[in-house]
Write a protein that binds this DNA or RNA. Structure first.
Length: 429
DNA sequence: TCTGGGGTCCTAGGACCC
DNA sequence: TCTGGGGTCCTAGGACCC
């Protein structure tokens, strides 16, 4: 007799304390040790291992506050090594693809589209196999949540992470309904994907504070009082799929290159240099994505904590879609007159929007002079990729070693998977 | 002294067109 | 001369994500 199929199911998989786990793969001395990964400039904590969280270290905590206690608590810190994490992420996604069609959602999480399964499928066993395989092949710990909607799969994953009985795998519909209801009646709405502090406050004003209450709310009334996003969340909590996630999109809609400085930039001349370099970096990324931009936004800012605060920004339309570093750097420089000499700017950035494919044929593309050709961007990018970043650059961008304001990463681990000279060494002894 | 960086989606409102 | 409504496109801003 044929068994009833489950409705379409999704599995949510994510790497536990991702950046810290990636660091541990090539540095076993960190195993079991409280470990944090720091933001650029070694500013604040962006990832904390289980042991570090047990010490009560919240994400976002500035490193200068933790450092004094570090020796005493055995806390280890690493600068963020995005090249390593990006490559480890790629490995994780490759393994996941073996199990089911995969939608990558972020650097460390993905949804597996399981489709309908027969009721006899042992979903828990499937989840455990995913988990064990990633541990064996990539070396990272993950948790798995399986449910009928994206939102519930996220919630199941969170449950698997928090409650040891699940041992890292939670199949939502296999838990007892009374138990589930009791759990949701205890959880605050902010535990739900897409509900953060602002919405939490507004929902509380309507008397909705727990996940159970949100699930029971009338979707139409929610749509009227909030918006479609919250309505979809209500539907998803009740088991009705309402969110669509796109396949990996080809090309992005915007590109941001933004950095804070290791020490403040206080002069227009200094900022001209910064923006020249950032313009070239942004151009390099455009070229890598095979895109051109039509609109550039340039911004600078002091620290939010500074006495004298200033956040100038400017929109610069570009005459034609371009990825030319010279054009972008020059356009970014247009903000300079807005800056106040002597103000301590802590960061600057460039945002490129109205992006389009570089090879796209545009019937009305205006005639361009030779020097505005994309050739320069390509050439600079190729040379830098072959010989290392900063080998060539235009104007101020050619400086090497890096200038004073450049990002500080004093605790950087080797890029063990993407550079031959930084491979991990294993000694037999 | 020292507090990240890179994205997406939705909505409201204005400009403009028919 | 005066009047109406509906549609599209764009942008800024708010909110969220990891």
């Amino acid at each position: 007799m044929p068994t009833e199929p489950h409705p379409a199911l999704v599995a949510h998989v994510d790497v536990n304390s991702a950046y810290a786990s990636f660091e541990r793969v090539f540095d076993p001395s960190l195993e079991g040790v409280p470990t944090v990964v720091l933001s650029n400039n070694d500013g604040c904590v962006v990832a904390a291992s289980k042991e570090a969280k047990a010490l009560g270290i919240p994400l976002g905590e500035p490193w200068f506050k933790l450092q004094p206690r570090a020796a005493m608590t055995g806390l280890q810190a690493r600068s963020s090594n995005y090249e390593l994490y990006g490559d480890m992420s790629r490995r994780v996604m490759e393994v996941l693809e073996r199990f089911a069609p995969t939608l990558q959602y972020s650097i460390d999480e993905a949804f597996l589209l399981l489709g309908p399964r027969s009721a006899e499928t042992d979903l828990a066993a499937f989840g455990r196999e995913v988990k064990d395989t990633l541990r064996r092949l990539v070396g990272v710990p993950v948790c798995v949540g399986i449910a009928r909607t994206f939102t519930l799969a996220k919630l199941a994953n969170r449950t698997a992470k928090k409650l040891p009985v699940f041992d890292g795998v939670c199949v939502w519909d296999s838990t007892r309904p009374e138990w589930r209801d009791a759990l949701l009646a205890r959880l605050p709405v902010s535990e739900v994907w897409s509900i953060a502090s602002r919405l939490e406050r507004r929902l509380a004003a309507q008397g909705i504070t727990t996940v159970a209450q949100l699930r029971a709310a009338d979707p139409v009334a929610i749509r009227a009082r909030f918006n479609v996003v919250v309505m979809r969340t209500v539907l998803e909590l009740a088991g009705t799929p309402a969110i669509t996630l796109e396949e990996e999109r080809i090309g992005k809609e915007q590109l941001i290159f933004s950095r804070s400085f290791s020490e403040p930039v206080t002069s227009r001349e200094g900022m001209r240099q910064v923006l020249s370099v950032y313009g070239q970096q942004a151009a390099a990324r455009l070229v890598r994505h095979h895109q051109k931009a039509k609109l550039l936004t340039v911004f600078a800012g002091t620290s939010h904590f500074a006495a004298q605060r200033d956040f100038p920004n400017m929109l610069v339309p570009l005459a034609a879609p371009t990825s030319d570093p010279v054009v972008l750097a020059k356009a970014a420089g247009r903000i300079l007159p807005l800056l106040h000499e002597g103000t301590r700017y802590a960061r600057a950035g460039i945002m490129l929007t109205d992006l389009r494919p570089a090879d796209g044929q545009c019937a009305f593309e205006p005639f361009r002079f030779r020097h505005e050709d994309e050739g320069i961007a390509e050439l600079v990018d190729q040379v830098n990729r072959k010989l290392g970043g900063g080998s060539v650059g235009l104007g101020h961008g050619g400086l090497r070693p890096g200038p004073q304001w450049q990002m500080k990463r004093q605790k950087l681990s080797p890029r063990a998977t993407t550079h031959w000279d930084e491979l991990a060494l294993v000694k037999a002894g």
